[in-house]
Design a protein around this nucleic acid. Sequence first.
DNA 1: CTTGACCCTATAGTTACTACAGGGTGTGTA
DNA 2: TACACACCCTGTAGTAACTATAGGGTCAAG
Lengths: 161, 161
Amino acid sequence: MRIGELGQATGVDIETIRYYEKAGLLPAPERRQNGYRAYAPLHVERLAFIRHCRALDISLADIQRLLAFVAHPESDCRDIDRLIDAQLARVQARLQSMQALERQLTALRGRCGKSHLAGDCGILHELVAAAHHEACICHREALSKPAEVEAVIAPLATQGA
Amino acid sequence: MRIGELGQATGVDIETIRYYEKAGLLPAPERRQNGYRAYAPLHVERLAFIRHCRALDISLADIQRLLAFVAHPESDCRDIDRLIDAQLARVQARLQSMQALERQLTALRGRCGKSHLAGDCGILHELVAAAHHEACICHREALSKPAEVEAVIAPLATQGA
DNA sequence: CTTGACCCTATAGTTACTACAGGGTGTGTA
DNA sequence: TACACACCCTGTAGTAACTATAGGGTCAAG
């Protein structure tokens, strides 16, 4: 199977496939005489594994760790548990910050009045007010809970962490 | 005010401050004889505006657009509304995909048995099963709703879109 | 032979930071 | 005066997970 066919079969972009090979997640396949990659069924399965984990927002580094567990069935299952637990905790933390964010944006959106001039815009006033150290409506609740501001900003800033 | 002082005053990393200046979001300040930046109160306010928007997960490009509205009070408020609406929609879509993800990870986590060998690990079995085109428990519901699989993968893949 | 689809490697770009290299400036202390 | 330390500067590179592009090779059909 050539790379285009693998891409078709799995819905993964060929450049992403080559990226995964370079990253060491997908074993380098045999090559044909003309230099084209020749993928075997094991590659299809491996790629499906990787995409499944990506769908769970598991980082490539963690996927690599999971693959090591697959390769070593005698290794400790608790490490896998810990990995998934950590992932679950990250997702839950992110979920909470997204929920706070939705509330804040909804509140900000509610500031739009009837005027159609930016100079009179309630949204802009709110955003500018924040710059004057006034408690804005979208963050008013959060300002009384400094930890929540951090909960919003920190995950955003460390989105890849 | 020097850059370190601005960083202290706003909680923003000095490298991030320089980044914003280079990105055109923060006006370049005057310079002292020795080349050090000399920030004015307007910079403090502008930086606060930017960080407030970042806290709302608004992209730097959109922040630039909002700043253009601030600079042109005669412009149309509806464009601001549309920007915030689009942002709200993005956050809500992301929120839904995170919720699905949490459910899936919770289900996967529940597969861990009592054995402590990776070879017997329910989590690994699930992940590997997915590679065999079997309906895994973490995605089983989603497989009956193909749109939801896309809802999980597409936002993850376009995280910066 | 030409054309278009497919393939190759290498490099660069995306987004929003963050880190590092190499060097300059200012201040306090011995 | 010399040294140490904190702070500053520009430029470049790195992070994570892709995605795009440049330049060139291969293959099959017309």
